[in-house]
Amino acid sequence: MSKRRPDGHGQSMPFLVSYRLEEKMCLAVPGKVVSLEGNGTGKVDYLGTTVLANLSLLPEVKVGDWVIVHAGFAISRLDQKEARRTLKLFKELEKISPAD
């Protein structure tokens, strides 16, 4: 686990393993579930940084799924099929021209 200090303002926070992902803002980047740790929790990997997340709000989640984590809780699973569909749509946009 990465143990970076959040850029708080002088408070010492020895009690938590902190990962500063723009505080508790909505994090756009999905993370990958790499292990289930029991008690409804699991490890989620963000390109090498692993955080422990509560998976209780996503009962069907499996190792290998990509999830959105907010305030320590996984709230949604990334639908890869839908993601590809949107990316395909972007490709189709290339065909648009003012002449259309």
């Binding site: 926070m13 938590l16 509560n54």
Partner: peptide, 9 residues
């Protein structure tokens, strides 16, 4: 006063 990142903390 303590800062937390998740209510569970």
């Amino acid at each position: 006063i303590r800062i937390v990142y998740s209510p569970e903390e």
